[in-house]
């Protein structure tokens, strides 16, 4: 019993520094914005702020931009599993079956570091509706009416999804590469001597081994999809119309362009609950496929 207590104490000791910091820099601000969401705080200094009960939450129900951003955000999420899957494949190849490993790794990591302005600029050229390489290729493949990509409301989000998947792939690759170092070679070799094919080994040995990392990447990916909007801001600014507006972008505009901080907090709280619900689902679902 005493031993258990001591164990617990040590456990708390290990996480104590982190807990203190997280409470100050995350928990407190979160509670603060929870309070804000019931107020009509507007303007930089919040002069004349009053509690207005559930008014902000009622306003959300009738807010068309919010509704659209909300649905866009779910569509936008698709880029996360795509990037995780492709990142895993590339990492597996980079890990064993290539020459010049070091140089190639650096090359695949680079996109993650480049300024969103440069990324946006080049992708806008690639997606050019009439002269861009992507549509030129589609047309030569016999597609008569290639999508207008960024210039049409129907396809703009898909263009953003492709860009985002491309951008976060570098991150996923690096994380996977580190995890793959832990996969015991002997195991893979034993399997291959048993006659397993390369893809089978990858699928049934390597993939389960790194599944905790896959879970991490999925959760992080979803969280970031609801948090970051740098690329969208640089490329479309949410347009055309509201077709690429996602919730964090709307929160940002409401907070720091319109300075309706009370309302922005309300949206943020809803946003927070949504991400949390998704994460919880992933967390509970992990029993089925994550192996520790």
């Amino acid at each position: 019993m005493k031993w258990m207590k001591r164990q617990q104490m040590i456990g708390y000791l290990f996480i104590l520094p982190s807990i203190i910091g997280v409470s100050i820099f995350f928990l407190f601000p979160l509670l603060f914005s929870l309070v804000l969401s019931f107020t009509n705080w507007s303007g930089p200094s919040g002069r004349g702020t009053e509690f207005i009960g559930m008014e902000n939450f009622q306003r959300i129900l009738g807010d068309e931009v919010f509704r659209q951003a909300f649905f866009n955000n779910f569509l936008y999420l698709i880029h996360v599993p795509i990037a995780v899957f492709l990142g895993f494949l590339v990492a597996v190849f980079l890990n064993r079956s290539v020459y010049m490993k070091n140089a190639l790794r650096a090359v695949f990591f680079l996109p993650y570091l480049i300024s969103p302005i440069a990324i946006g600029f080049v992708w806008m050229l690639l997606f050019h509706p009439s002269e861009g390489p992507i549509n030129v290729m589609l047309m030569s493949l016999g597609v008569d009416n290639p999508p207008g990509w960024l210039s049409s409301t129907g396809s703009s989000m898909y263009a953003i999804i492709i860009m985002s998947a491309w951008q976060i792939m570098g991150f996923n690759i690096i994380i996977y590469l580190a995890a793959l170092q832990g996969v015991p070679r002997e195991l893979e070799e034993a399997c291959s001597m048993d006659g397993a094919k390369k893809w089978q080994i990858t699928r049934y040995v390597t993939f389960p081994f790194v599944s905790p990392i896959t879970l991490f990447l999925l959760i992080i990916g979803v969280a970031n999809a609801f948090k970051n909007f740098g690329l969208i801001q640089a490329v479309t600014g949410g347009g055309p119309g509201n077709s690429t507006t996602i919730l964090p972008l709307y929160v940002y505009q409401t907070a720091f362009r319109y300075y309706e901080l009370g309302y922005a907090s309300t949206i943020a709280i809803i946003l927070f609950l949504v991400i949390f619900a998704i994460t919880l689902l992933q967390w509970l679902g992990q029993k089925k496929w994550v192996h520790y």
Partner: peptide, 21 residues
Amino acid sequence: VLYLMMMMVPPQVLFVPKFIM
């Protein structure tokens, strides 16, 4: 799980409280 929750906080809403702190 609380940690995971904190990770979900949109950074945009943290600016004002952070600034005040």
